[in-house]
Write a protein that binds this DNA or RNA. Structure first.
Lengths: 342, 342
DNA sequence: ATGAAAGCGCTAACAA
DNA sequence: TTGTTAGCGCTTTCAT
């Protein structure tokens, strides 16, 4: 068994309170400090955070529930958050719920039982029902990437609606009139936002929207492959496309590859996320890059603020919107006039 | 404050032992079961795993320390492990140590204080020193992907040495004689293994090794870009290259892109990891794919076995080696005879 | 089947 | 400054 404070007390002849005080920044006589440190060394003592957590009713642990760990966008954000939280003494328990609302519910129950001090969630449940139980605990919840339901909580978003609009406007300015969009699933906040951006651009530019140019799919590589193939097959007049997340973008590149279509000669393309992948494409893909580091920082700082501010110095819910940027590649050109084969 | 077992006891008029027994699968009179469940419902009771952990000296939590979360190979393995561990009632605390042995040490101390029941580690420290403190606790440790130092513990590996050898042999059989390798950092287990595979192939095929064809770099995209550019610049006679992890592979694709070299006309390439990326390349990249799902499963099962087997039914350390596969793409052809411009 | 009570390792009054 | 002590919420004997 691991050494306990009692062992240190016995070893040093001091009382428990002195040892505890030593660990919690209290004043301890120099002579005793030395004795305690020697005992710690010899016994390989490590504070038992479980016992401490029971006593203080704080586990110094944040739960993170996301749809998919194996997804650069999520992974980047988690890496960033974890870094900051750990610097402040907080651990993170990450639960990947595979985009399944039922698993998400289970993950949250699990975290509740583990008595995490707060929750950061990229919701898979579009209703917001899953958050009810956790938010009843009174512990802080920060949503990232997606807003959901009517549970009031802080929220860190990216302005992908604006970014999508500007990407589409840029395609229009390059001369494109029939622009396809490969969009995420219906009801998913980010998918709707990016579609709205697409619609905004058409409205601003005074171009009608043709619904046949809008295809939907899960946020998966395979859906991207199918989506772009469907658009190319059914809309030979299409000269450009916006693809609205990383998996879809990669799928789209695979699909165009398999069809033997050239970018941008046959089709101009603007993708999403993952700059490195965009650079690896030939020619380099123009993409909308999301500010993952900033989202991570905002989320971590927001929850830390909620965790430490005694009197709620920030009442009400906070919403922060971080800015995306359009990273130019070589995948956009003027429409060639030559239509691709269906 | 959250409800406790005491609240349930008060509500139902039962004793604490009965409630505890209810939660731990003991026999409870039907009538009381109903009462307890009603109270749980009304009070929104959730077991406090912190208190339970203190009492039972088990947190049902596994610590995972990896070099980089934002890395498909790691992310895939973690996703897989987490899935299995959660099914068995274990949470995972993932610590990304940014390939920094010092941060890795801190992460392990942190996990030790949190009293995780076991540790799964893809070591960043090449010495194995970091594991000493944790392994003294007597809790199980499972290493993945890399062997390290002389701390005796179970180990789940992939046979990337054999896979690298076969990839290089395949290039030789296609007619290549001057084959470059973009290799990971000196001292890193996987990097050395893959290099050994490259050397094995030369020995088996009776071809001398030219050290100028071996370049080293961190396992990063940028190192891949620089590595391939250096090889192309300094070794114009080179007709093929093996690139030995995902980041390096992506970097290599970017580098060749930027140089305007064609694959496989100017250079045959075999990459590593991430099948989706390989398909997205044009032409599709031939790669060595690692069995991430299998590694994840083996690691999770091994630690679960260590955690549950009372009498050590598996004494000594276990080493499992999982098989990689060579996934053919279109990035390998016979050498063209036409040398690329330096 | 159920209740009473001890104690896991720690913190935080309160006393000294 | 240091020691004593009472819990935090749970599990687990040991009685009943």
């Amino acid at each position: 068994m691991a050494a306990t404070m009692k062992d240190i007390a016995a070893r040093t002849g001091l009382g428990l309170a002195t040892i505890s005080s030593y660990f919690n920044g209290g004043n301890v006589r120099e002579k005793n400090r030395v004795k305690i440190e020697a005992a710690i060394e010899e016994l390989h003592y490590e504070v038992n955070e479980v016992a401490r957590g029971l006593k203080t009713n704080e586990t110094k642990t944040i739960g993170v529930v996301i749809p998919e760990l194996n997804n650069t966008f999520c992974a980047e954000i988690i890496t960033g958050m974890e870094d900051i939280l750990r610097m402040h003494g907080y651990a993170t328990i990450v639960c990947d719920c595979r985009t399944d609302p039922q698993l998400e519910k289970e993950a949250m129950d699990f975290l509740l039982k583990k008595r995490v001090d707060g929750l950061i969630n990229m919701p898979s449940d579009t209703q917001g029902k899953n958050l009810a139980a956790f938010s009843r605990s009174g512990k802080p919840v920060v949503l990232i990437d997606r807003r959901t339901g009517d549970i009031p909580c802080d929220c860190i978003l990216a302005d992908t609606r604006r970014a999508s609009k500007e990407a589409v406007l840029q395609l229009m300015q390059a001369g494109h009139r029939r622009i396809g969009i490969v969009c995420g699933p219906q009801g998913v906040f980010t998918a709707e936002e990016r579609l709205k951006g697409y619609l905004d651009a058409h409205r601003d530019y005074g171009l009608p929207v043709d619904e046949r140019l809008v295809v939907r799919g899960d946020y998966t590589i395979e859906a991207g492959v199918q989506g772009i193939k469907q658009l190319v097959r059914e809309e030979p007049q299409m000269t450009a496309a916006l693809v609205t997340n990383y998996e879809l973008t990669m799928g789209c590149v695979i699909g165009l590859n398999e069809l033997g279509l050239r970018v941008p000669e046959d089709l101009s393309v603007i993708g999403f996320d993952n700059l490195a992948f965009a650079r690896a494409c030939s020619p380099a893909l123009t993409i909308i890059a999301q500010p993952t580091a900033e989202i991570a920082r905002e989320a971590a700082e927001t929850i830390l603020m909620r965790l430490t501010s005694k009197s709620d110095e920030q009442p009400g819910q906070i919403t922060r919107t971080c800015s995306c940027s359009l990273i130019p590649g070589r995948s956009v050109s003027a429409p060639s006039g030559v239509k691709h084969e269906p």
